[in-house]
Amino acid sequence: MTRAVLGRLAGAVLTLWFAVTVTFAIVALVPADPARAVVGPHATAEDLARVRAHHCLDRGLAARYGCFVGRLARGDLGTSLRTQRPVADVLLDRVGPTALLAGAALLLQLAIGVPLGVWAARRRGRWPDAATGAATLALHATPAFVLATVGLYVVAYRWGWFPLGGYGAGGWDRVRHLALPAMTLAAGGIAAYAHLVRHQVGGALDSDHVRTARAKGAPERAVVWRHALRPALGPVIALVGLDAGVLLGGAVVVESAFAWPGLGRELVLAAHDLDLPVILGGTLVATTATVVASLLADSAHALLDPRARRP
């Protein structure tokens, strides 16, 4: 058991290292000068030379890699090139809004997607099933930026049901501001969960153990929610684990569209300015979140399903 856990942790560290290195390589390959982001387009050659020396941008690729990643390994995320603020502070400010948005989206996905899937499974082969299937497919296929635009223009602007973007002042105002971006971010996931649960539960409803439960006279509600849904939860939890990455990716688009001050939007801005310390720090946070979510999902799966505990 200990060995398995250590193995997983080593794998996680390796994943983080890989993500940071690939990100570093991509940024290094961009034929542009990050020093420009510090002093702007009006800077003279002397300004740029001074800034490059100050941020170890004037050395070879290997030395720059050592400079940035070495500091990262010591737990120092460095200083943002553009804002001169510690990267840890920048990211700490941004993690909260993104966690709120992604958490709300995940809740919506489960709260709507799972019951919808069960509902469709119980009507499998009939028109509500086909309609749900088509609707979720269409939802899944619609890019987040289209949903964001339509949501903002129609739902928020024309109908005035929600605020036009922004983070809100806190409390109820925050919830009002959160609703539309969270629904936009959740839309694709709702479809995915509904689809998955529909097929898992649909299959289970035809299986022997469900027939046995019915034959024993269990009420239909118990048959569906206990005997058919429970075995379907394994894949659902696995999907939750994978979802962290998907939600963070979607947050990049949704946060930018709704002026939501989160990690995704910060990374877009940092990428635009080639702010390497922020890009690497943000990648590290996003990768860590994904790895941790995946580890948690595996543990939860193991708790729920004894079969998963076997090595």
Binding site: L152, A156, L164, P261
Partner: peptide, 18 residues
């Protein structure tokens, strides 16, 4: 001063009086 508001969104906010 609101930051990082896309131009299209800012216009909707302006038109609505925000």
């Amino acid at each position: 001063m609101r930051e990082s508001v896309p131009r299209e969104l800012a216009f909707l906010q302006f038109e609505r009086g925000e």
